[in-house]
Amino acid sequence: MGPLIPNDIIPADWNNAIALLLGMAFGFVLEASGFSSSRRIMGTFFGYDFVVLRVFFTAAVTSMIGILYLDYFGWVDFGQLYIHPTYLMSAIIGGVIMGFGFALGGYCPGTSYCAVAIGKLDALAYSIGLFIGIYLFTFAYPLLEGLYNGSFMGYVTAPEVMGINQYLFVFFVVIAALGMFFVATIVQRKVKKVEY
């Protein structure tokens, strides 16, 4: 829990309770958006359903704008937020592997549990495979350690690396997201509808 627990604003004992609540809310949103259907997720790749793209980009854009406004209003201290460290090489390679898994299996880790919850067998196989993968990774760790910890860039954000104004960056992301929505709508109209 971001800045609240390390700064003793919420006692650390609440960590698990808050994680449970947030997890439930996240699962609910995933299921409500239809993310427990692998066909719907695959729609992004085949062009008949772009709900994944829409949901994730809407969430990203809304929260970006939201956090910056709350920071401006003085409700949230932006400087206190946790920034995930950047390991560029492992992020790129991991992203590629994850993309392949996504396209092949039709789930990403979060949505696969969502689908397990409503009793999908393919999702069950997917999540078992996930755990086998994690297990194998621990054995291969000595081999992969250099890659795993390599090209560390520190706790940086994209506007910092590019040296542009953070607000301007958000503006460009919003424009890009809206452009993507627009293109997605056009593509979706041209591609044959798939019933699922």
Binding site: V61, Y69, Y72, Y167, V170, F171, V174, I175, F181
Partner: peptide
């Protein structure tokens, strides 16, 4: 869409705050 656009534009134009 209009709301998001307006909000992001306003964000760029907001007067800068004192440093945190």
């Amino acid at each position: 869409v209009a709301l998001l656009l307006i909000l992001s534009i306003v964000l760029v134009l907001l007067p800068r705050k004192q440093d945190h």
